[in-house]
Design a protein around this nucleic acid. Structure first.
Length: 470
RNA sequence: GGCGCCGUGGCCAAGUGGUAAGGCGGCAGACUGCAAAUCUGCUAUUCGUCGGUUCGAUUCCGACCGGCGCCUCCA
């Protein structure tokens, strides 16, 4: 079994990775805050996590994955307050949309999707533990903070010097009465609006709600244990989110929180980070309306290595749509093939090797896809050549299925409804007749009429095949 | 100011100290009545610029130019 390597943000190097117990990867993936549908930038990270998950399985490990849904935070409370709703009324519909979008992009189900509000007792217990360990304190405003000075490892992930953080341009002089400007809230004292929308719970420190960082630590440890194998998220989460998770988790347990941290780079639009504040977001629903399949989005995202910024452009997306069409045509052709050649068999072996090697080397999806397209070209050629070797075709199908199980970039065929199909068949019969009497003007007119309805036809040795494209 | 990433053909994008994968697009050819699909060939003497190290650099080092990100909202 070839080795598997991943870039670890902690060491900032690509290093060999294996689950601690040698069997099951305990994977925690920072998920969405469900106050608004996640945009494509968010989904790039989730797609990276999906690839990671599938490749870990390809490597032969089981995966126990947690993806949290943050359903209590400032933005959610703000929205609930504005709309006169409870936070639950705000988050439930958005959670549904998230899963719908996720499925459209074929992101595999994680084993757990915990919601923060379902883990309040665990969060309180964690804060109590931190208070007991002397690294957390309740301030005059009633909130409980983590004293970063008490945790020696603070900054080891982000490598931000604490003094630099202090003098940083964006250290807010907020209204909380912290001992140190960098201390972060573990438990926030409830305000009237928190109470009004159901975002306040009883605690040893009075009514309040969890700080953002706390939920990930509490849920990760509750479900997966005190040390994770892998923790993933977007690169912007390195600081402060993940730094704070490390601090509060390790200060509580004395154990490493995650053995390996992986971060996905941003999706850019027009050369800037895709973000709501920038106003350049695109949602899954937008792409869907434009007829971009989930398969095409996957191809697009995986065409760039996950640690490199990716610029969303119409041209690139169209290229992906076309590329994925080619894969689908190949899949269909392979499924229908009767026999192959020795060369096809060899190509399949080479492909599997190259494919695994690329993916096991820090998830090099672009290279894995290059191997796929090379295989498709060679296989098409061999299928053109004919051949009678059934085992070669079997082997080709097997390897193609393996690759498709990871990339998942074969688009769903467009289903034509019965009425349309009947009409198409009628037109094709008429066209066949016209061609038979060499009335090509009439035949071409029919082809144009079909084309106008999005029906593409291919004349082949065995007759004319057609498919709907919309 | 601190920390970090990136700059490869028209577009997207891998990659290596030994002479540039793959996709999209384009051009030409085969196939086709014509197309479509598929296949074949061509499409970067060159990897932001300038230096350095080296027998040899796109790959290592330095400077510069350009782009992006993080520094408690942030995938």
């Amino acid at each position: 079994m070839p080795g598997f390597k991943l870039y670890n943000s902690l060491s900032r190097t690509v290093e060999p990775f294996a689950p601690a117990d040698g069997e099951t990867v305990k994977l925690y993936s920072c998920g969405p805050t469900i106050y608004n549908p996640a945009h494509l930038g968010n989904f790039r990270t989730f797609l990276f996590t999906d690839l990671l998950r599938r490749v870990l399985q390809l490597r032969g490990w089981k995966v126990d994955q947690v993806m949290n849904l943050t359903d209590v935070d400032d933005k959610i409370i703000k929205r609930a307050t504005e709309q006169g709703k409870t936070i639950r009324e705000v988050t439930d519909p958005v959670a549904s949309i998230f899963h719908e979008d996720r499925k459209y992009l074929r992101i595999a189900d994680a084993e757990h999707y915990p919601r923060a509000t379902a883990y309040i007792p665990q969060m309180i217990a964690l804060v109590e533990r931190l208070v007991r360990n002397g690294v957390a304190y309740q301030a005059e405003d009633g909130s409980v903070y983590f004293a970063i000075r008490k945790f020696a490892g603070y900054g080891k992930l982000s490598r931000l010097d604490t003094r630099e953080i202090q003098s940083g341009a964006r250290v807010a002089q907020d209204d909380y009465s912290k001992e140190n400007a960098q201390d972060f809230a573990l438990w926030k004292a409830a305000k009237p609006e928190d109470e009004a929308c159901g975002a306040a719970w009883d605690s040893p420190w009075g009514r309040g709600r969890p700080g953002w960082h706390l939920e990930c630590s509490a849920m990760a440890m509750a479900i997966l244990g005190e040390t994770l194998d892998l923790h993933t998220g977007g690169i912007d989460l390195i600081f402060p989110h993940h730094e704070d998770e490390i601090a509060q988790s390790e200060a509580a347990t004395g154990k490493p929180f995650a053995r390996c941290w992986c971060h996905g780079e941003f999706l850019l639009t027009d050369g800037a980070k895709m973000a709501k504040r920038v106003g350049n977001v695109q949602n899954v629903a937008d792409l869907r309306a434009e007829g971009v399949s989930g398969a095409a989005v996957r191809h697009f995202v995986y065409s760039t290595h996950y640690r490199k910024q990716l610029n969303l452009s119409g041209d690139a997306l169209e290229g992906s749509m076309e590329a994925v069409r080619r894969v689908a045509d190949f899949a269909e052709r392979l499924a229908a093939a009767k026999g192959g050649t020795r060369a096809l068999d060899d190509a399949a072996d080479r492909f599997e090797n190259d494919f695994r090697a690329a993916l096991f080397d820090d998830l090099n999806a672009p290279e894995a896809m290059a191997a796929l397209f090379t295989f498709i070209r060679v296989a098409n050629k061999e299928l053109d050549a004919g051949g009678t070797d059934a085992s070669a075709v079997h082997r080709a199908r097997e390897v193609f299925a393996l690759a498709d199980g990871i990339l998942d970039i074969v688009p769903e065929p467009v289903e034509a409804d019965g009425a349309l199909a009947a009409w198409v068949e009628g037109q094709l019969a008429a066209r066949a007749e016209a061609r038979a009497r060499r009335d090509f003007a009439a035949a071409d007119a029919i082809r144009d009429a079909l084309d106008a309805k999005g029906i593409v036809i291919e004349d082949g040795a065995g007759g004319t095949r057609w498919k709907a494209t919309r």
